[in-house]
Design a protein around this nucleic acid. Structure first.
Lengths: 138, 138
DNA sequence: AGCTAGCGTAACTTTTTTTGTGACGGATTC
DNA sequence: GAATCCGTCACAAAAAAAGTTACGCTAGCT
């Protein structure tokens, strides 16, 4: 997978660290070290999943749409659009090769199982956990 | 992750389907639908892990180095060099952002846990299983 | 009302990653 | 000693991801 998931968790944790405040995409981008548009794209997906809410215009910005203890990393992954941890090889196998013809279906089964266990792992973690681990003192 | 893992499983299953025979990288490449060099690169890694053996010269080629029932997909993944299912975002976070500074370490913990559960899932499957599922009649 | 700050999104560019190719040396069998 | 097949490097092409520019829209402010 790509690094979008990491960025998304970063953003959400940042929002969790400043409750009561709205953060602008520009501010977040500076914290994360990238471009505001990249941030907005991520947040647009997270908003579709009702994890964050945005407000335009002056004084606007982003905030969490719910208690960070109720946002799991599984939800984040789902919100970003589940891209399998593994990818099928895309080459067309030789038509006479029975292994080539059949392997994809079998691999799909395997990957589904793997995906489920990835999700199970991610479900254990919340944004509140992330924040807690970063600032154990607070 | 990329599709190399899928290709590797494909290759190994193909070798398992023709015991007693050596297959050339050219033949395998035709079955998989790619270039022989790509195949050789993959197999070179699998050989380092003692999963396959090769022989040069005329009549040469590749074969499994052990019983396909003793090759797990976990071993395959390890052989290819474990690349985490997730990737860290590489941008330097803003130095004043405590979340940005700390998030990586926490994410690393999460990803380690995920990786372990991926490996646990993959350990359940062997190349013999793959073959069995493709050709239930044999 | 008009100005400003901020999001929303499409189109495009750049960068990075992955995959594929060509070439050629070395080894082994025949 | 000629043919076959691996081993590997260097390069090319393609695909994917990330970053950038631009501009419309809305809500608040004065």
């Amino acid at each position: 997978m790509n690094s979008r998931f990491s960025t998304a968790v970063h953003i959400l944790t940042l929002l969790a660290s400043t409750p009561q405040e709205r953060l602008t995409s520009e501010f977040i981008a500076a914290s994360v070290g990238t471009n505001p548009v990249v941030i907005r794209r991520q947040l647009a997906l997270l908003r579709q999943a009702n994890l964050v809410s945005s407000k335009g215009a002056r004084g606007g910005g982003w905030e969490l749409a719910r208690d960070p203890a109720r946002i799991t990393l599984k939800q984040v992954r789902t919100a970003l659009g589940v891209e399998a941890a593994f990818r099928m090889h895309r080459n067309e196998p030789h038509p006479n090769c029975s292994v080539g013809q059949g392997i994809r279906g079998v691999l799909e089964n395997v990957y589904e199982e793997v995906e489920k266990s990835v999700m199970r792992s991610l479900a254990h973690w919340t944004i509140a956990d992330m924040l807690k681990r970063i600032e154990p003192s607070s």
